[in-house]
Design a protein around this nucleic acid. Structure first.
Length: 953
RNA sequence: GGGCUCGUAGCUCAGUUGGUUAGAGCGUGCGCCUGAUAAGCGCAAGGUCGGAAGUUCGACUCUUCCCGGGCCCA
């Protein structure tokens, strides 16, 4: 018996393939990549698309620092999927990866590594070390990106430290200078005392800290006190004060005004404190809170209420300074709409040199920008002696003590609030006024050539005008960046550091700056040849060129070079020019694709220079993705221990698993990520892999050019499979076109699981294995399977880059010979096949199949049958339509669809009834069907008719 | 605190302009097969659609508020 079985096994056409069931990705993938490298796959792909329309995805430069993390994985894989899909759709889609190489993080790291030695080194020596540091990480990340299966011009990436890139920055800057958008001004900016530098917004980290919360009485000047009396707010001879609230006592030394909201109601509260009588002016809405803060039990509130507007112009004396330290007016009540009644007293202490709102209010009221704090965070000599030279972060107590002694400290407490910190020194940041370079977003650009989009518009106006022209994916990106542009201040582009592109400005001995479009272009030319190091080594004459015509008042002998460098955001914000435009790509490029944090970052800061320099936005489409969070949806961090190490995951599972994970999640939202969530993708991967393996195994003897069966001659169920494939191609293409990769994943995966594995491939076994090798039945099935195999492999290629290649290599007879599947085209739908027309019929048949299978499950449960083939089914129904459908399809075919040996249709006017029993027939020992013909042939008593025929030939 | 955004079964996703008992696959459980075999097939159990109120004949879908996340800013 066993012998017989074995013999019959040999007469079957069982699947054959060298495509391994076990993926062994971590071993196989590196080999695959090596072979791609060897053949120069990236160049091959571009060459093969030389005459095709271009599709430019311009890479946003990651910072050249550290190992790549899951954020990089998501970003690079998404980009790679896009590029590979576009390539396979017939576009020439170059991908030039880039790195952000300058900037504080690297410089700070180098300083840390050097320790004390840093002080002994020149700027040039520090820069050299920074360059080494950046280059090291460019190399490291290049390897890690390539290990993800990303294709790109990794031999010639763009680096912001390359002379050509730096020259581009200058050239963009020259345009902005020419448009009059660049200016230098004293302005309060975030200042890191620890790093002694101005900080960009992006360099701030907010942390909760406890600060003093103090209420301070500013004594009203004599005439003002009299005015308040006349207004009816003050009745007695008590000390009349304006009460302010602050959490930064150290800024009181720089106080120049108090702001009141002209529309708010103010009252006076009278009380005694430490034996002294006070009448303090505060906002009505804050009375209760202030009284509580001062723990007042005996007090009277004025009946009279006045509007803030009545207070404007009143004067006070500074609590600790006698003489106005500025050359402008000071110490008066000014008007400001930002004053609210949410906290404080409704009267706001204004130090224009130490706060942004204060600065704006100060400018409006013609106050000085007084900032008596030096680089190191210590007061200068203009403050009272007892503060002079002291660190502002350490004087709160002294200030409070001083005020308390003078009887002006109404109340003190503590408050916990989130406060900006320097990302690097971890110290609280202060606002301090320094001379900085800015790009104005509100100055209007001059009228240039006729019809220029910039004419008479500010950058902000132009940006808001152009934003709707860009396609934002998801659509809310437009709202987000619009909101940011509406409220953003001028762009501070200067940094007091050395690792970066110097701001190309010269000064004469009178500190007058030389900054014209021409001067900057002259510098650009020099930088292009010699790189930015030359700014530090070469003389102004060498940099500008001997023939440069200096404006009046300047001579080469007394020119000094600017010491500030550009904000790195300005550098990366010029990549559309330094990379795309210099490569000859048309601006706007097709796509920018980054995390949604870049609405404020790279997207906005690329938009502004591009609009200023060219009047055109740099991108047609901007696609953003969300961030990885842990399994509970919380932020990932190394310190919380919920951090997923991307390198570990790649090493553990292989990059196709990671890529499949990226493709499987909806990247537009937060993506939950953990080792076990990624591990689950292995199951899906295996299912896809096995499905393709089965298709490979059953088509290994199928030569499409010889063995294909024309569509009209195919078996109906095979046509169904081809129809399902058409539907899949159409839906997958649509999903790819709309960047909905998780839809691509779901569609392909479900196709593998349901249409293929569970339905089609299962029912096909009998025909594939048992019918004659070259029979119409088998070739018909193979025609469908081959087509499905071919299309699935191509559609998977942008995602499972390694596996798709492995599949392609395992196809015995290829319809299209190429060195790599990535050189092929995406499958196109066959327009002659109308899959929609047939759907209603198939729905009926599949529904009936489900009902039959359910019935058979019952038989298996009570152990009447073991396999479906053992069953004989009777379907009784009065549904003529259903009967016709089944009869037209063929009862035998329907039995095959259910993998049952026999089905009888019984037309009767009754409710639909499906019954099943163990087949009365004998089992064919070759095909395992229970067919009536088994045993009818005396020569082959254990075979069915079909098998006898097949075995004979 | 502000802007934008998300919250449907254990997981990943569907749920069209508001309309019958909210779907799929995976995972889980229970079975079957042993000619895809470190595979394959079937069946079943899982959801008060974050919560509350409102609009409506009717809300997962619209409005408001609340809770809990995320990004960006202060």
């Amino acid at each position: 018996m066993t012998e017989d079985k074995k013999n019959y096994s040999k007469t079957l056409n069982l699947p054959q393939t060298n495509f391994a069931m076990k993926a062994n990705l971590t071993q196989r993938e590196p080999q695959q990549r090596k072979s791609w490298d060897k053949m120069g796959i990236y160049k091959k792909i571009l060459d093969s698309r030389a005459d095709c329309p271009q599709y430019i995805l311009h890479d946003g430069p990651p910072y050249a620092n550290g190992d790549i993390h899951m954020g990089h994985v998501i970003n690079k894989v998404l980009k790679d999927i896009v590029v590979k899909y576009k390539t396979m759709s017939g576009f020439k889609a170059p991908y030039v990866p880039g790195w952000d190489c300058h900037g504080l993080p690297i410089e700070a790291k180098v300083f840390t590594e050097l320790g004390e030695k840093a002080k002994t080194l020149s700027k040039l020596e520090i820069r050299k070390l920074c360059k080494q540091y950046a280059s090291k990480y460019v190399k490291l990340q290049t390897k890690q990106f390539k290990d993800l299966g990303v294709f790109g011009d990794f031999e010639n990436p763009y680096l912001t430290l390359k002379p050509q890139y730096e020259a581009g920055i200058c050239e963009v800057f020259a345009e902005l200078v020419g448009k009059g958008l660049v200016y230098k001004q004293l302005k309060p900016i975030h200042w890191s005392i620890g790093c002694q530098t101005a900080l960009a917004d992006a360099e701030l980290e907010y942390e909760d800290i406890t600060s003093p919360s103090i209420f301070v009485n500013f004594t009203a000047a004599k005439e003002s006190a009299a005015k308040l009396k006349s207004l009816g707010l003050v009745k007695d001879d008590s000390s009349v004060c304006f009460m302010i609230w602050t959490t930064t006592p150290w800024t009181l030394a720089a106080n120049l005004a108090i702001a009141a909201n002209p529309d708010l109601d103010y009252k006076a509260v009278s009380y005694s404190q430490n034996g002294q009588k006070f009448t303090s002016i505060i906002a009505q809405a804050r009375l209760e809170a202030v009284i509580a803060a001062g723990k007042l039990s005996n007090y009277t509130v004025s009946e009279k209420t006045v509007k803030g507007s009545c207070l404007i112009g009143l004067r006070y004396s500074h609590p600790c300074i006698e003489k106005n330290p500025t050359d402008k007016d000071a110490w008066l009540i000014i008007s400001a709409n930002f004053v609210t009644t949410e906290d404080g007293t409704g009267l706001v202490h204004i130090a224009p040199g130490h706060g942004l709102e204060d600065y704006v209010a100060g400018q409006q009221n013609k106050l000085a920008v007084y900032s008596p704090v030096k680089d190191d965070g210590c007061y200068d000599e203009t403050v009272p002696e007892w503060l002079c030279g002291k660190n502002v972060l350490k004087v709160d107590k002294e200030v409070n003590d001083y005020l308390r002694n003078k009887g002006l400290l109404f109340a003190e407490g503590q408050i916990t609030h989130s406060y900006p910190h320097c990302w690097r020194s971890r110290m609280p940041v202060i606002f301090r006024s320094t001379e900085q370079w800015f790009i104005s977003v509100d100055r209007t650009m001059p009228t240039g050539s006729a019809g220029s989009p910039q004419d008479g518009k500010s950058l902000r106006q132009l940006a808001l005008e152009r934003i709707p022209k860009v396609k934002w994916i998801p659509a809310w990106g437009e709202k987000r960046i619009t909101g940011m542009l509406e409220s953003r201040p001028d762009w501070c582009i200067s940094r007091q550091r050395c690792w970066g592109m110097p701001i190309p400005v010269f000064y004469n001995s009178e500190c007058k700056s030389l900054l014209t479009k021409e001067s900057v272009l002259a510098v650009a030319e020099h930088i292009r040849k010699k790189g930015s190091d030359s700014w530090f080594t070469d003389s102004p004459k060498e940099i500008l060129g001997e023939n440069f015509k200096l404006p009046a008042g300047f001579s080469f002998d007394d020119l000094q070079k600017e010491e500030n460098i550009f904000d790195v955001w300005f550098e990366s914000g010029c990549s559309w020019y330094s990379v795309a435009k210099q490569a000859g790509w048309p601006i706007p490029v097709d796509l920018y694709l980054e995390g949604s944090d870049q609405h404020r970052g790279w997207f906005q800061l690329s938009l502004l220079p591009a609009l200023g320099a060219e009047g055109v936005e740099p991108f047609k489409t901007v696609l953003t993705h969300g961030f990885t969070v842990d399994a509970e949806g919380k932020k990932q961090s190394k310190s919380l221990g919920n951090y997923v190490n991307a390198q570990d995951e790649v090493t553990k599972y292989g990059s196709d698993i990671l890529r499949l994970w990226v493709a499987s999640v909806n990247y537009q939202e937060d993506m939950r990520c953990s080792d076990s969530l990624i591990a689950r993708l292995q199951d899906a991967y295996r299912k896809i892999r096995n499905t393709l393996r089965y298709l490979l195994g059953n088509t290994s003897d199928f030569e499409p050019s010889k063995n294909s069966v024309p569509y009209e001659k195919m078996f109906e169920i095979d046509r169904w499979a081809v129809q399902q494939l058409q539907k899949l191609i159409s839906e997958v293409t649509d999903a790819y076109e709309n960047f909905l990769f998780h839809k691509v994943y779901t569609l392909i995966y479900n196709f593998c699981v349901i249409e293929m594995s569970s339905i089609y491939m299962d029912l096909l076994k009998d025909r594939l294995y048992c019918d004659a090798k070259d029979s119409l039945s088998r070739r018909s099935a193979q025609t469908a399977m081959y087509s499905i195999l071919d299309c699935l492999a191509r559609m998977l290629a942008p995602i499972l880059v390694h596996t798709a290649e492995e599949i392609y290599e395992s196809i015995t007879f290829k319809t299209e010979i190429a060195e790599s599947i990535h050189l092929l085209k995406m499958p196109q739908i066959d327009k002659t096949i109308d899959w929609q027309k047939e759907e209603p019929k198939w729905e009926k048949l599949m529904k009936l199949r489900d009902e039959v299978l359910k019935e058979l499950e019952g038989l298996r449960q009570n152990q009447t049958i073991a396999s479906n083939q053992e069953s004989s089914i009777t379907i009784t129904t009065g549904d003529n339509d259903l009967i016709n459908t089944v009869e037209q399809f063929g009862v035998k075919n329907f039995a095959a669809l259910c993998i049952a040996s026999e089905i009888k249709l019984n037309k009767a006017k009754s409710q639909k009834l499906i019954s099943a029993e163990k087949s009365p027939h004998k089992k064919c020992q070759r095909c395992w069907n229970y067919w009536p013909s088994v045993g009818t042939n005396s020569d082959n008593p254990e075979l069915c008719e079909r098998c006898i025929e097949v075995v004979k030939s």
